[in-house]
Structure formats: C-alpha cells, structure tokens
C-alpha cells in the first residue's frame, strides 16, 4: 500500500532523512518510532505531499507522491502533530468543509460527517466551536477530519501526545478499531503505544532506519540471550566461581554487594533454563538464595540500545 524507497531530505547541509526505506501492507498499522527530531514528521510530510524529498521514491496506493500528488492526496487522511484546526468554526461545519474539499459528493456529505462524528465520539460536540473544546476533543476533531472522506491510508503524527491517560486509551482503541479497513502509519515516541497498537515497527534515529520488525520479534531478537538477576547471601568471589561452573551461563556480572548480600546479572544461553541448577547449586553451598528472576527487556531498553548504538 505504501512504498518508501531511499527517501532523503536535506535542509542545506543538515540531513533530516537519510535513505529511508520501508513499506506498509494493506490493512496494517505501522508504528513509526524515534526520538524527537529523528525525522518522523519529515517523512510524514513527504508522504502527504506537503513538501517533496530531496531524492528517493515514495508511493501510496500505487501513485507516486511526487508525480501524482493530487491522486495521493485524495486517498490519505492526515493528522499533523499539533492538530491545526480552524478554531473559529463549529465542529460540524469544519468537518463538512473538509469533506467537501476532499471531494465527498454533495449527497454523501451529511452521512460521512455523521459517521466521522460518531466514530470519534464527537456527536455531542458537533455544534460547539472548535476553540471551546478541550485538547482531547480537538484531537478527536483532528482524527475525524482525517477520516471523513474514508481514505485508504491514515497518516497520524503523534496522535496521543498531550492527552490524559484516559483519553490516550480511548484514542488508541479508536485507532485499533480503524485497522483492517485502513492502512495506518502512526508516529510516536511512546513505546507502549507501539506494542499495544501496531503490527509492525520502524525505528528511526537521526534520519536513518535502525530496525523494522514486529514488536514481539524486536524484543526477542535483540535480547539474543536471556538474562537473570540473582541475589545471594554469601561470599561474593566464591559465588561467582560457583556460578561460572554451571553449564549454560555465559557471563557473570557482579552488580552490587552490601552486608554480604551480592547481586549478580547472568547472561545465559538462549533456550536453556538454568534457574533450577542455580538454585540447587547455591543451596548446596550453604548460601542463602534471596532472589532469582529473569530480566525482560522492554521495548524501551531495545529502543535505547538501538538508538545509542550509533
């Protein structure tokens, strides 16, 4: 549905995007993840034909973004980051205006606007002025204007930024409910958002794609080996030598020790569960086993790891 190939954008000597390549299948929700200034908004602005790239190719629904912007514009719904709306208009008037501009036929206008209002939970607000609405509701109006012509592709730039936790959950639910019917690209720098809503993740940093995968695969691949944390009451040096003898443990790192209690981080081989051996070994030596738990790498850790690797 969306093809991006070696997209590059430079402002003078500053390279905002450096040969970005990815693609999105029909019906997929793609998470676009990166720290502030990574190039997320730039990519989205190129895809929405707001400005062109310096080089590279991008196409949406088979139409080239640079060659046939008009065809592309007809097929997308875009929610910019700061949700710019005409605040001196009523919600329903605004949506009717947008629907008209997006080429919705006159006889369908009422229906489409009604649907968008309902989908975004705005039915009660339809006759309020936009500047009277709270941030959360304005966000919904922004989403509604993106949806109103029932586009094939939705491009949402940080759709949950600045909302309260309840609103965030609602917007996420809304986005998820739109999936399947539509192809969605969603940018964010909040990781749980990605693991909750997206089928696939593109992580970018400093204008480069660092990783493309499903949230699950990302977690397990980057982890490589699994890690354990062990807290032992006993002489640190002896514990280390004892642990190193156990098969399946690659590395033992002492983290801290106080009052004879030491904490270790163990890198273990993937696929071997060494917890029983560790427990048995420690008990056999007469030390006290205070804690033994696996460390799950969160998307956060992966993100930091990927982003700081450069």
């Amino acid at each position: 549905m969306i093809q991006v190939e070696k997209l590059t954008k430079s402002y003078g000597s500053y390279q905002a995007l450096n040969e970005i390549t990815f693609s999105v299948e029909k019906g997929e929700i793609l998470g676009f993840l990166g720290p502030n200034g990574a190039g997320k908004t730039t990519t989205m602005r190129i895809l929405t034909c707001f400005f062109p790239a310096t080089s590279g190719k991008a196409s949406i629904a088979g139409y080239d973004v640079f060659e046939e912007p008009h065809e592309v514009k007809k097929r997308i719904g875009y929610l910019p980051e700061n949700v710019p709306l005409y605040r001196d208009m009523k919600v329903v008037d605004y949506l009717t205006f947008v629907a008209g501009i997006k080429g919705v036929r006159r006889q369908d206008l009422k229906n489409r606007v009604g649907n968008a209002l309902e989908e975004c939970g705005l039915s009660d607000m339809s006759h309020k002025m936009i500047n009277e609405l709270s941030k959360g509701y304005r966000q919904r109006v922004g989403l509604a204007q993106a949806l109103v012509n029932e586009p094939e592709v939705l491009i949402l730039d940080e759709p949950t930024v600045g909302l309260d936790p309840k609103q965030i959950i609602e917007i996420r639910k809304l986005i998820k409910s739109l999936a399947g019917k539509r192809t969605i690209i969603l940018s964010t720098h909040i990781l749980p958002e990605v693991s909750m809503t997206c089928n696939r993740v593109v992580i970018i940093n400093k204008g480069k794609v660092v990783a493309v995968d499903t949230p699950q695969n990302l977690t397990s691949n980057i982890q490589g080996a699994s890690r354990l944390i062990v807290k032992v009451d006993g002489p640190a040096q002896e514990v280390i030598t004892g642990l190193q003898k156990i098969r399946g443990i690659n590395r033992v790192n002492k983290k801290e020790s106080s009052n004879g209690v030491s904490e270790f981080i163990l890198d273990t081989e993937k696929g071997i569960d060494v917890r029983r051996d560790i427990a048995a070994g420690i008990v056999r030596s007469g030390w006290g086993l205070l804690e033994l738990r696996p460390v799950e790498m969160s998307l956060e850790d992966i993100f930091i790891k990927l982003v700081t690797k450069e």
């Binding site: 034909c49 008009h70 514009k73 007809k74 997308i76 875009y78 710019p84 709306l85 501009i101 997006k102």
Partner: peptide, 14 residues
Amino acid sequence: KSGTIELLLTYPVT
C-alpha cells in the same frame, strides 16, 4: 501561524 496551511495543502486542492 496556526499551521492549518499544512492540512489545507495536503487536501486535494490546487
């Protein structure tokens, strides 16, 4: 100033 131009110019209008 308000940024609405970004939306306006990404609508299918010339």
